[in-house]
Design a protein around this nucleic acid. Structure first.
Lengths: 213, 213
DNA sequence: TATTTACATTAACAATTGTTAAGGTAAATA
DNA sequence: TATTTACCTTAACAATTGTTAATGTAAATA
C-alpha cells in the first residue's frame, strides 16, 4: 500500500506556518524561530523574555514588538500545530478509504507533519501544560476530539475484521504514543532522515509488532 | 507464556519507597505524598513551596523540616523511581530466559512498577527536565543506559529470529513509548484497573500489532 | 528531671520575572 | 515633505519565589 505518496508529493492545504519556521531573515521570522528553539531547549517556564531578547541581541522590551505576551507566544505555536494535525486527520477521515488504509494514512501524515515541524511538535507534546485557564481547557478538549476520532477509526477496523479485537482505548493510546516520540529523532539526528524509511518501519511496528512469527 | 506471574506473586527486592506513597498518617509520609501529587498536577516549576505548605495546612518554613530544597524533592522522586526500573531490568537480563521471554518480562515488570507508583512515573516522564546541572546529566546518562540495554535485548531477538529485522533504535523507542503513557490510565481511572488485562493487551500490541492477519 | 525531637510560627532577604512607560532613530510610505 | 512603520533604548513597577533566621511549644526520650 503506497497511497502514502499522496502525502509526499502533494501539498495539503495546511495552514501557512512559514512565518514561524522558515529561515528568512526578517526580524519577525527570526524572533519566532529562535523563541521556538529556546522554549524547546529550556522549557516554557524556564525560558524568560530576557533569554529570548538576549538570543536576538536586543533588549527585553523589544520582545513586545512581536508578541503581546509570553502566554500568547506559546498559544501561537500550540494551536497552530494542533490545527495542522486536525486538518490532516479530517481530510483522511472524509475520504472513501477503508479503516486500515485510513490508519496507514494517519501514520503517514503524522510523520510528515512531524518531519516538517519537529520543534513545534516538541512543544505540543511537552509544553501544553503551561497554557493558562481558558486556553488550556480548549487545548485539552481539541486533543480529546482528535483521540476520539482515532478511537472511532480503530473500532471501525475491528468491526471490519481488519484489526485485532483489542481494547480501543489502549490501542489508540499506544498507536499515538508510538508516533509521539518521533520529533526527537528529527531534532537530534545530525544526518538527514529518510521519512519514507521511518514510515515503513513504524508502520510495520504498529500493524505487525516486533514478533517474527 | 505466563512467566508473568513471577512478577505478580513475588516481591522483588525493590527499594523501599513506602515513605513516599503509603498513606500512613505520619507527617513526613503525608508531606511526600501530597508534594508528589501537587507536582504531578501543577508541574514542578509551577508548584511553589507555599503551595505545598498550604496543602498540608502549615506555613512555608515548615517545608524545610522535611526536605533540604525544592530541587532535592524532585531528585528524591526521580532517582528513586529510576533505581527501581533499573533494578528490575537488570534482574531480567541476568536470567537465562531467551530474548523474547525477557522482553515479555520487561513489559510485565514495567506495568507492575507503573501500577504501584503511577504518580512517580508521571514525574519520571514529565518532570525530569527540571533537574539541575549535575543531577540532570546523571539522570540522562542512566536513562540512556536503560535504553541501551533494551536495544541490546532487541538486537539479540533479531539475531535469534524471534523478532522482525526492524531498526533497533526505532523499535526500542516505540516499545518504550508504548509503555510510557500507561501511568495516565492508572491515575485517571476511577475504577480499579486489572493489570493482568493491561499486560495482555499491551503485550499483544507490542508483539503482534493491530493487524488481524 | 533534663534534653532532644518533631513540629510550628512570624518576618524578612535577595533575586527573578513579565510587563509597561516614555522616548528615540532611520527607513519606507503617503 | 509629512507621517507612518519598524525597530531600538533605559528605567522602573509589582508580584512571586526559594530560602533562612530567630523563636516557640509540647511530647518523647535519656
Amino acid at each position: 500500500m503506497l497511497i502514502v505518496f499522496k502525502y509526499l508529493l502533494t501539498d495539503l492545504p495546511f495552514i501557512d506556518f512559514s512565518f514561524v519556521t522558515m529561515k528568512k531573515n526578517t526580524k519577525k521570522e527570526r524572533f519566532f524561530a529562535e523563541s521556538l528553539k529556546l522554549i524547546h531547549e529550556k522549557g516554557f517556564k524556564a525560558t524568560t523574555m530576557r533569554d529570548i531578547a538576549s538570543k536576538l541581541n536586543f533588549e527585553v522590551a523589544n520582545v513586545y514588538n512581536y508578541i503581546d505576551s509570553k502566554n500568547a507566544l506559546l498559544e501561537t505555536f500550540l494551536f497552530g500545530m494542533q490545527d495542522e494535525f486536525h486538518d490532516s486527520l479530517d481530510e483522511i477521515l472524509d475520504s472513501s478509504y477503508d479503516p486500515k488504509e485510513k490508519m496507514h494514512l494517519v501514520v503517514s501524515s503524522y510523520i510528515q507533519i512531524t518531519s516538517k515541524r519537529p520543534y513545534e511538535q516538541a512543544l505540543l507534546v511537552n509544553e501544553w501544560r503551561n497554557l493558562k485557564a481558558p486556553k488550556l481547557q480548549e487545548f485539552i478538549q481539541r486533543r480529546k476530539e482528535y483521540e476520539n476520532k482515532i478511537k472511532i477509526l480503530f473500532q471501525e477496523g475491528v468491526d471490519n475484521n481488519q484489526f485485532e479485537n483489542i481494547d480501543v482505548e489502549i490501542a489508540t493510546a499506544t498507536i499515538l504514543a508510538a508516533l509521539r516520540w518521533l520529533y526527537k529523532k528529527y531534532i537530534d539526528s545530525t544526518i538527514k532522515i529518510n521519512s519514507l524509511e521511518i514510515e515503513k518501519q513504524l508502520t510495520r511496528l504498529i500493524f505487525n509488532g516486533i514478533s517474527s512469527n
